[in-house]
């Protein structure tokens, strides 16, 4: 079939809300766009393990410790589901990991901020996972089948993550004055980076339009950001904490909160490698991978030996 005809049929499928599956014909750009987005998403899960894993050994009770460990472990699982989804498009995990380590591939810039106190674990669960879930629920209907299926599984598993974070915030906000101050400090530091997680405003987003046309993305960055702000303000009020935005006001007419200008300069600085922890994060991932090389190699060699023995 001619490319134009194939493309026409592909577009019709998208139009009819039919999922695209791995062996189906797809435009090269659709494939690339998906690989880029899915692998970026996978990298975010994996790099995202690091700031939280920081606190596993320092969790203040055994109950908190198992919850946090299980949560960070889930993120490894989610990264794995997503790498698998990307692998159906003809790339392999090793290649994607190389791109992460070389700086060619991006990941969510939020994970370049440090976790300096225990309240950060609460704030990440509440705000960062809250923002991620807003994004991810929307992605459950994405047009590429394996990506959509991975997202459904991830959303199911993530539902405990945000509650875990909010519970930590509650314990601190209603705890001693020192704990409450720690909680407020965490909110101050994580609020704006959380809003940045939705990406540039619609006008400035490079990949957005095409992704929307192909239904890889279902809602715009600004729409999702607004949804997140709307549902989070009341949660902050319940905690008795103040969102660090003097311009935050409820608009009776629209039924939405309007909020202050995001510091986009900071956003682009952090994305381009100048955030507080970019270097440490990539270095930690690269070290884990390189230190593990002999282990992966030995396992292969052993499997080969055993297979040969069976044949002989």
């Amino acid at each position: 079939m001619e490319t134009t005809a194939l493309e026409h049929r592909f577009n019709q499928k998208i139009e009819r809300e039919e999922k695209i599956e791995p062996k189906d014909w797809m435009p090269e750009d659709y494939r690339k766009n998906n690989i880029r987005q899915i692998s970026q998403h996978a990298h975010s899960e994996i790099v995202g393990m690091l700031p939280e894993a920081n606190w596993i050994t320092r969790a203040p009770s055994l109950r908190r410790k198992v919850a946090l460990l299980a949560k960070v472990q889930d993120e490894a699982g989610h990264g794995l589901y997503l790498y698998s989804a990307a692998e159906t498009l003809g790339t392999d995990r090793e290649e994607m990991i190389d791109d992460l380590h070389s700086g060619k591939a991006k990941y969510s810039s939020i994970f370049n901020y440090p976790t300096t106190t225990w309240a950060d674990i609460g704030a990440i669960g509440w705000l960062v996972d809250g923002a991620a879930i807003t994004n991810q629920v929307a992605l459950c209907r994405t047009s590429y089948g394996p990506y959509a299926r991975a997202m459904v599984k991830i959303c199911k598993e993530e539902s405990f993550h945000q509650r875990q974070g909010y519970e930590i915030m509650c314990a601190m906000a209603f705890g001693t004055p020192e704990q409450k101050a720690m909680a407020q400090d965490a909110l101050n530091r994580w609020w704006w980076p959380s809003l940045m997680m939705f990406g540039p405003t619609d006008g400035d987003s490079v990949h957005s339009q095409k992704s929307m046309d192909w239904k890889i993305k279902r809602y715009s960055n600004d729409e999702l950001r607004q949804e997140f702000v709307d549902k989070t303000v009341a949660q902050a009020e319940y905690l008795g904490l103040t969102i660090p935005d003097p311009d935050l006001t409820y608009n009776d007419e629209t039924g939405h909160y309007s909020f202050g200008e995001i510091d986009w300069k900071e956003f682009y600085q952090v994305i381009s490698g100048n955030g507080p922890c970019n270097k440490e994060r990539i270095e930690a991932r690269r070290k884990a991978h390189e230190d593990g090389a002999w282990v992966r190699e030995a396992a292969n060699a052993f499997a080969q030996k055993r297979a040969n023995q069976q044949v002989a």
């Binding site: 699982g77 698998s84 692998e87 396992a299 052993f302 499997a303």
Partner: peptide, 22 residues
């Protein structure tokens, strides 16, 4: 349910237990 990497089939079963049956 998905896929994973393993050095051999026996390890793949264990990995599947750890990854997909948590």
């Amino acid at each position: 349910v998905g896929s994973l990497h393993a050095a051999d089939a026996a390890m793949a079963i264990e990995n599947a237990r750890d990854v997909y049956c948590r």
